[in-house]
Simulated scan of single mutants.
Amino acid sequence: MRQRPELTLSEVVERFEISRATLKRRLAAGELVGAHKDRGGVWRIPIEALQAAQIAPKKTWLADLGQIDSDLGHELGQELSPLEIRVSQLERDLAHELGQRQKAEAIAEERKERIVDLQRAMAMLEVARPISSEVEKKPSQALKKKRWWSR
């Protein structure tokens, strides 16, 4: 089994759709399986862990990953078959699409909550309307204050 490259925090932030603070929180929570610190105390995060956590790569980096895969094959003394490269590309595409789906679902949930809030506001406005027909017929009398001298 071939080993995929491991990235540092800076490389992940540069190449994936995630901030440094969020990445650190997810590392602390143990969400990135296989991530570890090397002897120098630098985090090493396998690409598989990023894919499993559904962290989408930036589109500009997708083209560079093909080069990394072929470089990795040469380092290990293997030549990657076109099918292996295609599988790798499809895995990245899937991770990206899963990230997009999560974003869309979050937006849909937010909009659903907004609709419910607006429906409640509309219901409150309808209840607050005056329903007395006397007020509509004689607005001058309804607005008159009763004075102490005219009891």
Rank of each mutant, 00 (worst) to 15 (best):
R2P: 03
Q3V: 04
R4S: 04
E6K: 12
E6Y: 13
S10I: 01
E11L: 03
E11W: 01
V12L: 01
V12E: 00
V12F: 01
E14G: 00
F16V: 05
E17S: 11
E17R: 13
E17Q: 14
I18L: 07
R20D: 06
R20Q: 07
A21N: 12
L23N: 00
L23P: 00
L23A: 00
K24R: 15
A29K: 15
E31D: 15
L32N: 09
V33T: 13
V33H: 11
A35I: 05
K37S: 08
K37Y: 07
D38Y: 12
V42C: 09
R44N: 08
I47P: 01
A49I: 04
A49W: 02
Q51P: 01
Q51V: 07
A52E: 15
A52R: 14
A53E: 08
A53C: 08
K58V: 07
K58E: 12
K58C: 08
K59E: 08
T60D: 12
W61D: 03
L62W: 07
D64K: 04
G66Y: 00
Q67P: 02
I68G: 00
I68S: 05
L72H: 05
G73Q: 09
H74Q: 15
L76V: 05
G77D: 09
G77L: 09
Q78I: 05
E79D: 04
E79A: 04
L80H: 07
L80R: 14
L80I: 10
S81A: 14
P82Q: 13
P82G: 14
P82A: 13
L83D: 14
E84C: 01
S88E: 07
Q89M: 15
L90D: 02
L90M: 05
E91V: 05
R92T: 04
A95Q: 00
H96R: 11
E97Y: 08
L98W: 03
R101F: 06
R101S: 04
Q102F: 00
Q102E: 04
A104Y: 11
E105G: 04
E105D: 08
A108Q: 06
E110H: 03
R111G: 02
R111N: 11
K112F: 02
K112P: 00
E113H: 11
E113R: 15
E113D: 13
E113M: 11
R114W: 04
R114I: 02
I115Y: 10
V116E: 03
Q119A: 14
Q119L: 14
R120G: 11
A121N: 06
A121P: 02
M124Q: 14
M124N: 14
M124R: 15
L125R: 10
V127G: 02
R129A: 14
R129Y: 11
I131W: 05
I131T: 11
S132A: 12
E134R: 06
E134K: 04
E134F: 06
E134L: 08
V135D: 10
K138M: 13
P139F: 13
P139K: 13
S140D: 15
S140T: 12
Q141V: 14
Q141S: 14
Q141C: 10
K145P: 01
K146C: 04
K146Q: 08
K146R: 12
W148F: 00
S150P: 01
R151Q: 03
R151S: 02
